[in-house]
């Protein structure tokens, strides 16, 4: 007598619907994804640099000086020196790209659907690059030779 196979339960047991990317079909592996490698490496390097830059920024702007003394004149004097301009430009670039890279990985972790991923990544890049550009524009084109604002 043939063995009866019990019928499969119809509830909750959900089979995975699509064949996943890890199923090997004998095809050659896709080429090495250099972007992920370099973004990982950039994360490490920018993290170490940010430690120096952000801490220096903190010490100079919030410990040595503080928000009470920081005003237009302070910024004007500071940005008269190309050194500080370069410093601020680098800090802006590192902080923004490091943060964007972090948000990108978060999106990859939590957003599975292709369409939403593309949407989220696009928003991230547009907003990030926009801030990078206006920040850089302010730092680069600021004219320290303008007169001080009249005291109120």
């Amino acid at each position: 007598m043939a063995i009866q196979t019990p019928e499969r339960p119809k509830t909750a047991l959900k089979e995975p619907t699509k064949r996943s990317r890890w199923t090997r079909t004998g095809a050659r592996p896709r080429p090495t994804n250099a972007f992920e490698l370099y973004s990982w490496y950039f994360f490490r390097v920018s993290g170490i640099l940010l430690l120096v830059f952000a801490l220096t920024h903190l010490v100079v702007m919030h410990l040595i000086n503080n928000v009470e003394v920081i005003n237009y004149d302070f910024v004007r004097q500071r940005w008269a020196s190309p050194l500080w301009r370069t410093f601020d430009l680098l800090l802006l670039f590192l902080a923004l790209t490091h943060g964007m890279n972090g948000v990108r990985t978060l999106i990859y972790d939590y957003v599975q659907s292709k369409g939403w991923r593309v949407f989220n990544i696009s928003v991230l890049y547009i907003v990030g690059i926009f801030f990078l550009l206006i920040g850089a524009q302010v730092i680069i084109t600021f004219n320290p030779n303008l007169p001080s604002l009249p005291a109120k």
Binding site: R30, N33, E36
Partner: peptide, 17 residues
Amino acid sequence: DERIAVLSQSEGVFRCR
């Protein structure tokens, strides 16, 4: 090389946090 090619895919080793 074959294994590294598999691991360097977007859902490979670099999803490690």
